[in-house]
Design a protein around this nucleic acid. Structure first.
Lengths: 333, 333
DNA sequence: GTGAAAGCGCTAACAT
DNA sequence: ATGTTAGCGCTTTCAC
C-alpha cells in the first residue's frame, strides 16, 4: 500500500497538517479558499484518509457489526439490506459476522469486538446461545448492543422483534381452522426467544381448543433434523399440521414429505416463519408468517446509531415490536 | 470503550511495553517464563489488542473484503461460507460489501479500500460494471484483487470461475434434446463475463443445430425484468425453452408463467444457473446448472491469501476453472 | 532477556 | 486563519 497522507497534501500545498485536517473536516476555522484548495488537491492526488489512524486517534471506528447465524436465510438477507440502508446514510460501515448457530463462534466474535473494532453491534443470537455473559461483557466495555429478531431475555438491551407470540397463535389457529387437531411445533432451540415465543403462541391456541402439544426441538444439523422430522412423520399418529419456526425446517418438511410420499396439504399441512420470495412457487406453495425483515433491520440500525450518536438515557433500552403477516398459501389450504 | 492496553499490562507485571508486545507475539527474544506470565495476565485482564493501532503501525489490517452484488442469492451466500472458512483459519477478518448491482456503489467501495482498510479484495463485479478503472486503481495501490465467478476481462488478475461456456452449451443442448427449437437466453448484462460466456455456450449449441438466437438482456430492476419476460412469453412465437443466466430471472419466469397461465414444462421449459437448495421443491422442480459455490469461495480466498502472504510472482494472476453440474429436474423434462 | 524510544496517520488542544 | 505539538496503542529497531 502506497498511500497519500495528510502530510503529503500539506507539503504539496505549503500548509500544515492541521490546516489540512481541519479543512477536510470542514472546520469553521479555515477559510473557504483554503478549503477549496485542499479539497481540490485531495481529489487530484486521490487522497483517502487512513481509517485506522483516525479510529486510533478518535476512539471511534465508524464501523458497526451485524452478528447473525447465517446469511443464507431470507429473513437475514433482507434484514441486512435494511441495516445497510440506514448505516450507509450515516457514514457507517457494516461488518457481517456469521456464527453458524455456534455459541463458541459467537463468543469469539464478541470477544474480538472488545478491542474497539466496532462502535456497536446488531445481533440475532445463535440457537445455542443460552447465556449472555459474552454480551454483557461487551456492553460493559461500552459497546452498545441491539438485538433484532432473536433476543436474549436476560440481557437488558434494546430489542427490535416481531410479534412472535401473536403470529404463533394466529398460525396455529389457522391450522386448527383447517381441520388439524394433531399439530406439531418445530422449534429451533429451547433457548431461543423467537422459538419460545412462537411456541407459546402455539400452546395458547392449542390449549384454548383443548388439543395436545407436540413440540420438537431441532438442532443446527440438517441431517439430524431430517431424521427427527422423518421419524415424526412416520409415526402412526403423525401430525397433520406442522408449524415450523424457521425456514430451514420447512424445507426439510418438504423433503421428508416427498421422500415418504406424503401429500401436502392433504396429509400434512405446513406453515412456516419465512421471508422466502419464492414461497409462492414451491409445491405446494408455502403458507408463511412473513416478517418485516427490512423494516426490522432499519429500526435496529436506527436504534443503534441513536445510541452511538448521543449519550443515551434509557439503560434497559427500548422495546419495539413490528407485526408479521400470515400469508395463506397452498401448503395449509 | 474502556480498554486494557499493553501499557496497563506492562505496569501490572512490572515489565516494559516492548517486552509485552514481544511476548504476545511469541518472540524468541523473550523467556518462556515471561511469556507465560504475560499471557496469563492478558487472559486475566481480558486484554484484546487494538486492531487499529497495529494496523496503523504494521500497514496490514488482516482484513479482506468480499465485494458482491447481493447477499440474497444462493450462489453468493454459499461462496461467502467458503471464503470465510479459509479466511478464518488464517486469522483474517471478512468484510462483506454489497454493490446492489450498481456501478457507482462498487466504485465508491473500492475507492474507500484505497485507504488501506483491507489487505485484499475478493470480488464479483456488478452487472453494470463495464470498465475496470476503479479496480486497476486499487491494484495499483498494491491491494490485490481476486475475481470469483463474475470477472472483468480487461483487468489482469487472478480469477476463479466456473465453466460458464460449457455449462451454457450443455444446458442449451439439453433443452434442444427436449424438443425445444425456440429457446431464449436471459442474460443479465452484455457487460458481464458470466452472462456472456453462458450466452456464448448457448449460441454455439443453437448454431450447431441451426436454430435462431433469441437473447434478452435484463436489468437489475425486478419490475422491468418481469415486464420484459412477460412480453416475451406473450408473443405468438413465444419461446418454448428458456435458459436463465441467474437465479433472480428464473423466479420471474415462474411468476410470469403462473400469471399467464402457461404450463411448465409443457408450454415453457426452464433451466437456470442457480444453487438454490429448494430447487427440487419448486413447482415444477427447477433444472439447474449448479455451481461449486463453496469451492469457488475457498479457492478464491486461498488465492488471495497466497498473494498477501508472499510477494507473488505471477503478474496476470492464475486462472482457475471449476466445473458446474447440470441437474435435471421437472422444469425441463 | 529486557527496555527506551521513534513513529505509523490522524486529530485536537493550544499557540500564534 | 494557520501552525505546533502531543498523543491514540502498537511494533520495531537499537541499546543495554
Amino acid at each position: 500500500m502506497k498511500q497519500i497522507n495528510i502530510k503529503a497534501l500539506a507539503q504539496e500545498l505549503n500548509l500544515s497538517v492541521s490546516t489540512i485536517s481541519k479543512a477536510l473536516r470542514d472546520s469553521y476555522e479555515i477559510s473557504e479558499e483554503t478549503k477549496h484548495r485542499v479539497l481540490e488537491m485531495a481529489a487530484k492526488l486521490n487522497y483517502t484518509p487512513n481509517p485506522y489512524a483516525s479510529s486510533l486517534r478518535g476512539k471511534k471506528s465508524k464501523n458497526i457489526a451485524i452478528v447473525i447465524p447465517e446469511v443464507a436465510d431470507s429473513f437475514f438477507s433482507q434484514a441486512i439490506n435494511g441495516i445497510e440502508s440506514v448505516a450507509k446514510g450515516k457514514g457507517y460501515h457494516v461488518l457481517i459476522c456469521l456464527t453458524h448457530e455456534n455459541f463458541e463462534n459467537e463468543q469469539a466474535i464478541l470477544k474480538e469486538f472488545q478491542s474497539g473494532r466496532v462502535d456497536g453491534v446488531l445481533m440475532s443470537v445463535s440457537s445455542e446461545t443460552a447465556s449472555g455473559g459474552h454480551i454483557q461483557e461487551l456492553i460493559a466495555k461500552e459497546v452498545p448492543v441491539v438485538f433484532f429478531d432473536r433476543a436474549l431475555g436476560e440481557v437488558p438491551a434494546t430489542r427490535i422483534v416481531t410479534d412472535d407470540f401473536q403470529s404463533g397463535y394466529k398460525a396455529t389457529m389457522h391450522l386448527i381452522g383447517q381441520g388439524c387437531r394433531n399439530i406439531a411445533f418445530l422449534g429451533v432451540s429451547s433457548k431461543l426467544s423467537i422459538s419460545n415465543d412462537r411456541m407459546a403462541g402455539y400452546r395458547k391456541a392449542m390449549e384454548e381448543k383443548g388439543l395436545p402439544f407436540r413440540e420438537i426441538y431441532c438442532s443446527s444439523s440438517p441431517e439430524e433434523n431430517y431424521t427427527l422430522i422423518k421419524e415424526m412423520l412416520q409415526q402412526p399418529d403423525r401430525p397433520c399440521g406442522v408449524l415450523a419456526s424457521v425456514e430451514k425446517l420447512a424445507t426439510l418438511v418438504y423433503q421428508v414429505c416427498s421422500d415418504l410420499q406424503l401429500n401436502m396439504p392433504a396429509d400434512v399441512k405446513l406453515v412456516c416463519f419465512s421471508n422466502l420470495g419464492i414461497a409462492a412457487m414451491l409445491y405446494p406453495s408455502l403458507t408463511t408468517v412473513t416478517q418485516p425483515a427490512f423494516e426490522m433491520g432499519k429500526a435496529a440500525a436506527a436504534a443503534l446509531l441513536k445510541l452511538l450518536e448521543k449519550k443515551n438515557t434509557d439503560p434497559a433500552g427500548l422495546n419495539m415490536v413490528i407485526p408479521s403477516e400470515l400469508i395463506l398459501r397452498g401448503s395449509s389450504l
